[in-house]
């Protein structure tokens, strides 16, 4: 083989071959595949249609449940600092049930001076109350 072989020296030809009649049969084989692809697409479509009908109300129901869940308003948050002391005391005197722990807490408050507004008792009423109870003979 000569060393100076150039591409232009080589005759241009296709070196590969196909089986006899290959190109006569190929269109029919391709059409067979397109038909099976169409059938497959048809089955997918025919399955999807009833599934879609079944899924639609379920999705609608889920949307309603989600909408209901998110539309329920949260409990209002009350800022206690904004509530007058008298309203708090009124509420506690009406609804609160005192327990032993509350008395213990009261013991801790003995040292502190409670403002008269907090007690919501006039000095005169307080004095009358003290005279009514003989504190020295009370048992706990």
């Amino acid at each position: 083989m000569k060393n100076e072989l150039k591409l232009s020296d080589i005759p241009k030809r296709n070196p590969y071959q196909v089986p006899d009649g290959y190109f006569d049969r190929l269109p029919a084989r391709v059409m067979e595949r397109t038909e099976s692809a169409q059938e497959q697409a048809f089955w997918l479509e025919s399955l999807w249609r009833p599934l879609r009908l079944a899924v639609a109300p379920l999705v609608l129901l889920l949307v309603f449940v989600a909408a209901f869940f998110y539309s329920v308003p949260d409990k209002p948050i009350i800022n206690l600092a904004g509530v007058p002391d008298t309203a708090i005391v009124d509420y506690l005197s009406t609804y609160a049930t005192l327990e032993t722990a509350d008395f213990a807490e009261l013991h801790n408050l003995q040292e502190q001076e409670l403002p008269s507004e907090m007690l919501n008792v006039s000095p005169k009423a307080a004095e009358e109350e003290l005279e009514y109870y003989d504190l020295n003979h009370m048992e706990y």
């Binding site: 296709n14 590969y16 196909v18 089986p19 290959y22 190109f23 190929l26 269109p27 084989r29 391709v30 595949r33 397109t34 692809a37």
Partner: peptide
């Protein structure tokens, strides 16, 4: 277009069976 497509593929994959499969895939 089958022959153009087939020979375009065949020269790349060399093997006839591979070229045949790929040609059908292309037309699909």
């Amino acid at each position: 277009y089958q022959e153009k497509v087939y020979w375009h593929i065949r020269k790349m994959v060399i093997d006839h069976d591979d070229a045949d499969d790929l040609t059908q895939d292309v037309f699909l």
